[in-house]
Design a protein around this nucleic acid. Structure first.
Lengths: 138, 138
DNA sequence: CTGGGTGCAAAGTATTTGCATGAAC
DNA sequence: GTTCATGCAAATACTTTGCACCCAG
């Protein structure tokens, strides 16, 4: 299961005073490889490596890692949340037919600055999900 | 509980072949007055009018009305979903301190058209939530 | 009338918690 | 050796379902 990013993940975990257990590394690795994954699929995947892993372990770790912003929860309309390894801010394109979720860097900075000014609102985070039909499903 | 919009709501319900029961009208009325409301608060509010209403009734109606697009579910980061009466497409500003959610009409059409073209993706819906600190909480 | 809606209780899912054991550091 | 994580089982939270009765149309 070890790939070139595992060392980074170990360091990152320790930065947050989280022990770098094999289960945690596997979770991050699988989330990373899938790009976006929901709890159930993650559980199925990780059981291939740790057949006795508990769902409670998944939940506990998803929660702590999300709180530490190592992972990010993406709440999708009409389906279960998916998780991703935190990257720089971006939006999501989600296909309503095949369910695929892809990242999308949009240049909306000027737009958000305008909004910030107009409403006197300090924007800390943006959640942008564009739902529709992807190229392949059209 | 009757206000000027109740007739409209009755008509709207019937357009979808949904019976205009007092419970349904109350749900729409309360959602409308609050702007955005979660299930628990809605339940508390509606019990003031129908003390024996069942949570199951709330869920069933929220579901049917959401399926018929009479109501819209807004999934918020780090908290429970809120519901609103469907209006024209808009974004949401959400204060992380007081929890207030306000509507926001943004002119992002050109942005979305660009994305549509660039990714060959047919956008049907947009979910945009900007989280941060509102004017009053700063 | 008749079909669909309501309220209750029960079932089904999803998520969290407590605790003994075990692994990371 | 200490501290924290894991895995199990139980508890809690959330949502849906089945059914008898009732009301909107």
């Amino acid at each position: 299961m070890y790939n070139s990013k595992m060392n980074t993940y170990m360091e990152t975990l320790r930065q947050y005073n989280l022990k770098a257990t094999p289960q945690r590394l596997a979770i991050i690795d699988i989330v990373n490889k899938h790009g976006h994954i929901n709890i159930d699929t993650l559980y199925e995947e990780i059981k291939k490596q740790f057949n006795s892993i508990s769902l409670a372990t998944i939940y506990k770790n998803i929660n702590t890692m999300t709180e530490n912003q190592l992972l990010l929860e993406v709440k999708l309309p009409n389906s279960k949340s998916v998780y991703e390894v935190t990257k720089s801010r971006h939006a999501h394109l989600r296909c309503e037919l095949c369910g695929d979720v892809q990242d999308l860097t949009i240049d909306s900075n000027s737009l958000f600055v305008d909004i910030s000014n107009k409403y006197d609102f300090k924007i800390n985070n943006t959640d942008v999900i564009l739902s529709g039909i992807c190229k392949d499903c059209q």
